[in-house]
Lab assay of single mutants.
Amino acid sequence: CKVCGDVASGFHYGVHACEGCKGFFRRSIQQNIQYKKCLKNENCSIMRMNRNRCQQCRFKKCLSVGMSR
């Protein structure tokens, strides 16, 4: 997965992504979610083991690796 490094389940929203990141991105855009501000200057490292800790940084990384509708 380009977002968290887990095993990708396919090509989702323009990038190779796992089911977790695919679902997270889908919910984020469909529900237009505004995530809580990052407590670490929006510089969190997103990996499989910690991908749920900072939703703002995870969504930012989804966009930075090329995920789009």
Rank of each mutant, 00 (worst) to 15 (best):
K61N: 09
K2T: 10
V3C: 00
H16R: 10
L39V: 13
I33K: 10
M47G: 13
C38K: 02
Q55V: 07
I29G: 01
K40A: 14
N41A: 10
E42N: 12
C4E: 04
M47L: 12
R51I: 07
N43L: 11
F24S: 04
L39S: 14
G14E: 08
N43F: 08
E19Y: 08
K36G: 13
V7K: 14
G14S: 09
S64R: 08
M67S: 00
V3L: 02
Q55D: 13
N50I: 07
Q56W: 15
V15Y: 06
C62N: 01
C54P: 05
A8S: 09
V7W: 10
C38R: 01
I29D: 03
R51E: 11
S64D: 12
H12I: 03
Q55L: 12
F59P: 02
K37M: 15
R58F: 14
R48V: 15
S68W: 00
N50H: 05
K36E: 14
A8Y: 02
C4G: 02
S45Y: 12
K37W: 10
G14L: 01
A17R: 01
N41P: 09
R53F: 15
N32M: 07
N43W: 02
G5Y: 00
K40T: 13
R58M: 13
K40V: 09
R53S: 14
C54E: 02
V7P: 09
S45D: 08
C54S: 03
Y13Q: 04
L39C: 13
G5K: 06
V15C: 04
Q31P: 07
C4R: 00
F24H: 01
R27Y: 02
N43P: 07
I33H: 06
D6H: 02
K60W: 13
Y13L: 07
E19P: 07
C38H: 06
V65A: 09
R26I: 15
S68L: 05
S28K: 02
R27W: 13
I33A: 08
C54L: 03
I29W: 07
G5R: 01
H16P: 11
G66W: 14
K2G: 04
V3P: 00
I46V: 14
R53H: 13
Q31R: 09
Q30R: 05
F59R: 06
S28Q: 01
R51L: 11
Q30S: 08
R58S: 01
Q56Y: 12
Q30E: 13
H12Q: 05
R27D: 14
M67H: 00
M67F: 02
Q56M: 12
R69P: 15
Q31L: 10
H12G: 07
C54Q: 00
M67G: 03
K37Y: 04
N41G: 12
Q55E: 15
N52V: 06
R69Q: 13
C38Y: 02
V65K: 01
R48L: 14
N41W: 04
K61Y: 05
S45W: 06
R48Y: 13
M49C: 03
L63M: 00
C38S: 05
V3T: 00
V65R: 01
K60T: 04
F24R: 00
C62G: 01
S64C: 07
K61R: 10
D6Q: 06
C54R: 04
K61C: 03
S64A: 12
C18L: 03
V65M: 12
S64N: 08
C38F: 01
K36R: 05
R58Y: 12
D6L: 05
M49W: 12
L39I: 14
